[in-house]
Design a protein around this nucleic acid. Structure first.
Lengths: 345, 345
DNA sequence: CTGAAAGCGCTTACAG
DNA sequence: CTGAAAGCGCTTACAG
């Protein structure tokens, strides 16, 4: 392997001069620099990043923990983080924890040895128990995409999930819906709260009986929850699903139940994921500012690394944005026939 | 930061002894080892991986290039690679190239500085032009998930895409289909060839006019291509889509066209992606052995790294497997009415 | 089984 | 602007 020393010899200078040329930190006489650069090319010299890291104490690598990568949300987060890092010349060390606490712990222990300059943990509640491990970490840690149970000791930049629920509710209220149901995943309580508040603002209460838990966060789970909801309250004119995949399931359930969307039933999702564009009708949803979140988290992380002071425990909340598409509209007027069955106009 | 030296001092030994205890490579007297371990705990010592890497020449990190992570196929590849690495105590440095050659080149240049022990490049044709850069790499390189234009100079472990098309065709032939159409993405020529061969085996020719290119590799693209195909040949009894997302679009198009699946039309996809389980009906598809591919690629890579000899340019082909679900069945008998319109029984 | 030495390839002050 | 020295924290032979 060709080292800086080899280049120096070839160019007739010392390796410090080569270092100065390579780093550009110290001015070098143009003619010398040219000679050095020629030697570098001739020898095919490539600096050894590991040696540099040991000398500087910086690997220019940051670790990212995500529960999985096989989900539109986290896939986007990963790519957004990577982009933010690349702009700054950093590399990405990826760990997917797969909702496996033990696996997470192992990874954490590995990283603690400081092969990274900083660590970003995205929405991984399974890590919570092992977070104390991070107290000994030699690098700053920031949390992002955290919805519930946000640990106190770390800075976090996340999305205002309460507001995302609220904005969905607001939309349905503005359309004129009064009687609605919610399809939720167990971990999405905050979204549901926000959604209810939008109705409460207008003096409307969404009873607990109108909140239906999806058996699983999948298309099928959405169908099942929607079937339950539609059966429990045939007069509900709109469904809010806390997750787009549930909403797409709801669309399917509505079709099976002969409820046309949005004419006889409005459906609003959450996440603004691509599948909402593919569904029929296309899905009104709350888009999450993932890129912005990634950027701010990385910025926080890298600033903390630079100052290497204990990072200020700050809390940044980003506002999601409603995307109105074809699955939501004003409620149909409802009239009751004498024998109690429901017709929509 | 507490170093090995600090631990040594505390335990009253030299740092080599500490090193021996930590690495476990050299036997240490139990009582001494205990003392060292106690010191490690008291001081909260964590070894510095960077220093170790410089000394050993190994970072225990491997780089992975993928076009994106926002696709079921590559998301699975990434997680499979990560699993294979974790078993061996390696970390994963991830680079998504986003079909951006320039971006890929930058990453490549960065990695060439050897912050990784090995590099796995998954199906990224955009890298092709920059591959010569890798000639100077200080680590072995292996290609995987490569479908076309496989470079000669690198080992590759990939899927037998010709066979995957073949197996889809075989399935349709066994069901009795004779007249079929293909929905394809431009980069899937190999799959199409294999598919055609299954028919050719029985003396049946699939004309070029029955191959329909999807305008984009999406749900909408699938709908569009299926519409074209169905209009071009209403008598086709089956559709093979080279990509599940196209197949799911075809399902939608079939529904719109009043063709019931599989009764009046069979649809076979490719990739065995999760969406095939969510569609209605569920999708018959060709499952790709991604985990096995990842495992073998990593094994090849790490072996090459260990021997550090020039890796043998081998070519490993893995066999995909047909998953029969509800979207395929025998063709309906077709009878023509006197005025030429088509009825199915 | 334990200790003294050299070295991994770079960078960072510090003289000249 | 360029060179000599020390050091980053570990590991790897090599003596004792």
């Amino acid at each position: 392997m060709v080292t800086m020393q080899d280049v120096a010899q070839r160019a007739g200078v010392t390796k410090q001069t080569v270092s100065n040329v390579v780093s550009g930190r110290v001015a070098v006489r143009p003619s010398t620099a040219a000679r050095v650069r020629a030697a570098i090319d001739e020898l095919g010299y490539v600096p050894n990043l590991v040696a540099r890291s040991l000398a500087t104490g910086s690997t220019r690598t940051v670790g990212l923990f995500v529960p999985t990568v096989a989900t539109a949300f986290y896939a986007d987060v990963v790519e957004a983080v990577e982009d933010a890092l690349e702009e700054r010349g950093y590399h990405l060390l990826l760990c997917t924890t797969r909702l496996d606490g033990e696996r997470a712990r192992r990874h954490l222990a590995g990283l603690t040895s400081r092969s990274v300059d900083a660590l970003l943990i995205a929405g991984d509640r399974d890590l919570l128990d092992h977070l104390p491990l991070l107290a000994n970490a030699r690098f700053p840690v920031v949390l992002c995409a955290w919805e519930t149970a946000v640990p106190e000791r770390f800075p976090v930049v996340t999305i205002d999930y309460d507001y995302s629920g609220y904005v969905a509710g607001r939309h349905l209220r503005e359309l004129g819906h009064e009687r609605v149901a919610v399809l939720a995943s167990p971990t999405h309580a905050v979204r549901v709260e926000g959604f209810r508040r939008a109705f409460a603002d207008d003096g409307l209460t969404i009873p607990d009986s109108a909140i239906h838990m999806a058996p699983e966060p999948t298309f099928r789970g959405g169908i099942a929850a929607a079937n339950t909801a539609l059966a429990a309250d045939p007069e509900a004119t709109a469904l809010f699903a806390t997750h787009d995949v549930l909403a797409v399931g709801a669309l399917e359930a509505a079709r099976d139940a002969g409820r046309s969307v949005p004419h006889s039933l409005s459906v609003v999702g959450h996440d603004g994921s691509p599948e909402g564009l593919l569904s029929r009708p296309t899905l009104t949803s709350v888009a999450l500012p993932k890129r912005e979140m990634a950027r701010q988290a990385i910025e926080l992380l890298l600033r903390a690394d630079a100052t290497s002071g204990p990072s200020v425990i700050s809390r940044q909340l980003l506002r999601p944005e409603l995307i109105v598409r074809d699955s939501s509209g004003p409620p149909a007027r409802i009239r009751r026939s004498s024998h109690g069955s429901v017709h929509r106009t």
